[in-house]
Each structure stands twice: as structure tokens, then as C-alpha cells.
């Protein structure tokens, strides 16, 4: 019984890590811009593809050893994916912001950007799925009836590390303070000598960089890539961010792990076809009782 609980807890943490890593991007951008960046799930998908191309290039074309490729993949994927996020902000969101467009139009633009990323991918690379090459030898450990792999542990550890890093950035650095200040009173921020656009770009760099990292880890864990892989997981991560309290990074992680746990639990007891139905229903019930999510406050004054 105890083994079963621990086993499911590990699975829930690993599965929730992906939601958490993606949810933080929604939450960061929302905290700073009150924009729901619906393209973010597809930025995760692009991250997985970037990881795929970087990995195949070094592994197959140059014959570099797998662990070296992984060490290269992490920074390269994060950098290239954050460039994608920053590009979206630059060519799609910033012009609208400068024209003072209503939030509704910006959200619809974000939705379109997501669709463009999906279909550009489809158009360029075709509908066939891509198989992500194995970078490290996957070891299965068995401790007292609980089994886990080195990759699973790495995913969980990464999610916690990312949380600590982000928490440090948001609470301790001047950039983080500026992000919180923007969420409180955007108008007064330039009076501190802080260029708004610079902080917004940093926000997108962080959100999409970590989405890229999630894409890499996801591709390593479930090595089949297709253009729509970011859509459902993106929606789920967004909902996780809302349940946690959008705008608060603690909420993104709590919501991500909670959703992971619910899904794993459902699958443990019910046919897996019921997974999403039950998971979404539970989240809906939570939101009915706590519409602003766990860490959310009624006013939007948070990251």
C-alpha cells in the first residue's frame, strides 16, 4: 500500500513538473501584462522541436556523445525558445500594446500566434511525427517496490530547481521587483528609470526559456513529437496556473503539481479515458469555491 502511494506520488510529481514548468510562463506574463499568452503551449511545442533539431544535429551529424549533447541541448534549447517567445512579443504583442489595444484583441492575437506556430510547423516539417533520439541511458531503479528512472528524477529535480531560481529572481533581484511593481502600477514604473519593454522582454525570456526546457525534458521522456503536442498540455497548464492563482509563481507550481496528482490518481482508479474529464471537473469545482485560485487575490497585484 505504502509503495503504491509513493509510486503514484513520484509519477504525479513527474507529470506535474511539466505542467508546472509550462504554467509558470502563463503566470509570469499574466502577472506583468495581464495578458493570457495563449501561444505559450505552442512555444513549449516549438521548444521540443528545437531540442529535437539541436540533439539530432550534434548526435547524428557530428557524432558527439549523448551526455555532451544533453549538456548543449539545455542552454541552446532554452536560448532559442526564448528567442521565439521574445519574437512573438516583439512582432505581435508590443505593437498592440503601444497602440493601447483592448486586452481582448491581444488575447485573440495570442491565440492566433499559437495556431500560426502549429501550422507553420506542419507546413515546414510535415505531418509525420519525429522520434526524439535517446540522449542518456535510462536506468530503472527499484527501491522497496517503488520503481523510478533517472530521467523521472531529473524532471522533478529540474522543476524544483526552476521554482527556486524563479522565486529568487522575483523576490530578490531588482528585475523581479520591477516585475512585481509593473503588476501593481505599470504607469509609475518608468518613473524609476526602468524601461517597461525591457522588463517585459525579460519576462518572456524567462517564461519561454523554461517552456523550452520543459519541451526538451518532455521530448526525452515521451520521445514522439508532433505539431499539436503543445495544444492540450498548454491548455491544461494554463488551467493549472489559474487554479494556483494566476500571476503568482507559487500558484503555477502548486497548480501544476495538483493537476499532475489528480490525473495520476484518476488513472490509478478509473479507465484512463476518464482522466481529462475528471481532472477538469475537479479543477472546475475548486474554481467555483475559490475563483481566484489558491494564491490569487481579487486585485491583480501579484507575481
Amino acid at each position: 500500500m505504502l509503495e503504491l502511494i509513493i509510486q503514484n506520488a513520484i509519477n504525479a510529481l513527474q507529470w506535474g513538473s511539466f505542467y508546472a514548468l509550462i504554467a509558470l510562463g502563463y503566470t509570469l506574463v499574466y502577472g506583468v501584462l495581464t495578458l493570457i499568452n495563449f501561444a505559450h503551449g505552442d512555444v513549449f511545442m516549438v521548444g521540443a522541436y528545437i531540442a529535437f533539431f539541436v540533439a539530432t544535429f550534434f548526435l547524428v551529424s557530428l557524432g558527439v556523445p549523448g551526455w555532451v549533447v544533453l549538456a548543449l541541448c539545455v542552454p541552446l534549447t532554452m536560448i532559442l525558445t526564448s528567442l521565439v517567445g521574445v519574437t512573438l512579443e516583439r512582432i505581435a504583442y508590443r505593437p498592440l500594446r503601444n497602440k493601447g489595444a483592448h486586452r481582448l484583441y491581444v488575447v485573440i492575437t495570442a491565440l492566433m500566434c499559437g495556431l500560426i506556430l502549429q501550422h507553420a510547423n506542419l507546413a515546414i516539417f510535415g505531418a509525420s511525427r519525429k522520434a526524439f533520439p535517446p540522449l542518456i541511458q535510462e536506468h530503472v531503479y527499484n527501491v522497496g517496490g517503488v520503481s523510478f528512472t533517472n530521467l523521472k528524477v531529473a524532471v522533478i529535480v529540474t522543476a524544483f530547481l526552476v521554482f527556486l531560481i524563479l522565486h529568487w529572481i522575483v523576490t530578490r533581484t531588482r528585475v523581479g521587483m520591477a516585475m512585481r511593481a509593473i503588476s501593481y502600477d505599470k504607469f509609475a514604473v518608468p518613473l524609476m528609470g526602468i524601461p517597461l519593454d525591457q522588463i517585459i522582454v525579460i519576462t518572456f525570456v524567462l517564461g519561454s526559456g523554461f517552456a523550452g526546457l520543459a519541451g526538451l525534458l518532455f521530448a526525452m521522456s515521451y520521445p514522439v513529437l508532433e505539431p499539436y503536442m503543445g495544444a492540450l498540455i498548454g491548455w491544461k497548464a494554463f488551467i493549472a496556473a489559474v487554479v494556483g492563482g494566476i500571476g503568482d509563481i507559487r500558484g503555477a507550481f502548486l497548480g501544476g503539481f495538483l493537476l499532475g496528482a489528480i490525473e495520476i490518481l484518476v488513472v490509478a482508479f478509473f479507465p484512463s479515458t476518464l482522466r481529462d474529464l475528471i481532472a477538469f471537473t475537479v479543477l472546475l469545482v475548486i474554481l467555483t469555491f475559490k475563483p481566484t485560485g489558491f494564491f490569487g487575490v481579487a486585485k491583480t497585484t501579484k507575481i
Binding site: R174, M177, A178, R180, A181, S183, Y184, D185, F187, A188, L191, M192, G193, I194, T301, K302
Partner: peptide, 20 residues
Amino acid sequence: RRIFGNLTVMENLKLATFAR
């Protein structure tokens, strides 16, 4: 005034040194 109410006094002051 438009101070940043969600930041501490010290954080408000520190933020103003952003461009220093």
C-alpha cells in the same frame, strides 16, 4: 504618491536605483 504597495519600503527604494 503611486508607491508600489505590494513591495516593502526598502524594495521601493531599491527599485529606484534600477538605472543607476
